[in-house]
């Protein structure tokens, strides 16, 4: 079973009522147990894809299977296996937090006693137990996101889909969410996540799919993708100011201001060499960091390539 697919999509298309084609034939597979990042610029079609999987959007054509179940055959059974954290808040803000969870469980046919127990478990895990009697509108934005995660879990889905769960969530809470999701994934839940924070995708996900303008333009493992990165740019903070960038063979160096140096390093070249050269010239480096997140660099590259390909 470990090799089974949690999700498989074939030639999925969607044309909205206004004639706009949001998906132009997407095929992808997510293995059971995977932590999958579905990335893409605004309007790429991520939420549309997720909407179809969860029955919020009607597909135009194509096939969707959730584990062994074809949604055209038995959507009802398929839905039991999925938990959705949507991009937009969609709970009733006048309902108390606990009631939202218990009702959601109720729609899945889970009796009230069990529903209350599950609500307690997930509200505690997500740090919302103190707020259980409050109306949802009185929660902060980050708490509302966590409420939606708790709600998506009450029926214990095997596949959890999160559409930008960390949008507008502060760093501390985001980190605790990451930890929570990592543990959930480790305990066997397959997770699909969309996000615009690529650092998040890089930290959490093992597999990655990039959608652009309704097409899947990349679908590979995080490791393989990062290996494709040809150059990396580092920013070095210098101890003493420089007049001009040192000229070092193989490295493209650029002075940003008199104490900040940018170095573009190709993959086949060692960083040691750069430091040896700098030391030789008496240039002392205080700290060093990546200029951009590695995945971000790739992402921008892939999407640009795709746009260029489309123009010609």
């Amino acid at each position: 079973m470990a090799n089974a697919n949690a999700l498989s999509i074939q030639n999925l298309t969607k044309t909205y009522a206004n004639g706009f084609q949001a998906l132009k034939g997407i095929s992808l597979e997510v293995r059971e147990g995977d932590f999958y990042a579905l990335l893409g610029p605004n309007g790429a079609g991520k939420s549309t894809t997720i909407g179809i999987i969860c029955s919020l959007v009607t597909k135009t054509s194509g096939k969707v299977r959730i584990f062994d179940t074809d949604i055209d055959r038995d959507f009802s059974s398929a839905k039991r296996l999925i938990g959705l954290v949507p991009q937009e808040f969609n709970f009733n803000v006048f309902e108390p937090v606990e009631e939202i969870l218990v009702n959601q469980a109720g729609y899945f046919g889970i009796d009230r006693r069990t529903a209350f127990a599950r609500a307690e478990q997930y509200l505690k895990q997500l740090g919302l137990w103190d707020k259980r009697r409050e109306q949802a509108r009185d929660l902060s934005g980050g708490m509302k996101r966590r409420l939606m995660i708790a709600r998506a879990l009450v029926h214990r889905p095997r596949l959890l889909i999160l559409d930008e769960p960390t949008a507008g969530v502060d760093i501390e809470i985001r980190r605790s969410m990451w930890q929570f999701l990592t543990e959930l994934n480790r305990s066997g839940t397959t997770i699909i996540l969309t996000t615009h924070y690529l650092e998040e995708a890089e930290n959490l996900c093992r597999t990655i799919g990039i959608i652009d303008e309704g097409e899947l333009v990349e679908n590979t493992t995080m490791k393989r993708l990062l290996n494709e990165l040809q150059t990396e740019t580092f920013v070095l903070d210098l101890k003493a100011p420089l007049q001009e960038a040192p000229d070092i063979r193989q490295h493209c160096l650029r002075l940003v201001d008199d104490t900040t140096l940018e170095a573009e390093i190709t993959r086949d070249c060692s960083i040691n060499f750069l430091f040896d050269e700098l030391t030789r010239r008496g240039i002392e480096v205080l700290s060093m960091r990546n200029k951009t997140n590695r995945l971000e660099q790739l992402f921008v590259h892939i999407v640009e390539e795709n746009n260029r390909a489309r123009k010609f």
Binding site: L56, F75, S76, N90, F108
Partner: peptide, 17 residues
């Protein structure tokens, strides 16, 4: 109201006939 505020989605994602 349920439709307008998208609460209906809570029912749509569930196996409710």
């Amino acid at each position: 109201g349920t439709k307008f505020h998208h609460h209906i989605e809570e029912m749509l994602v569930s196996p409710l006939p």
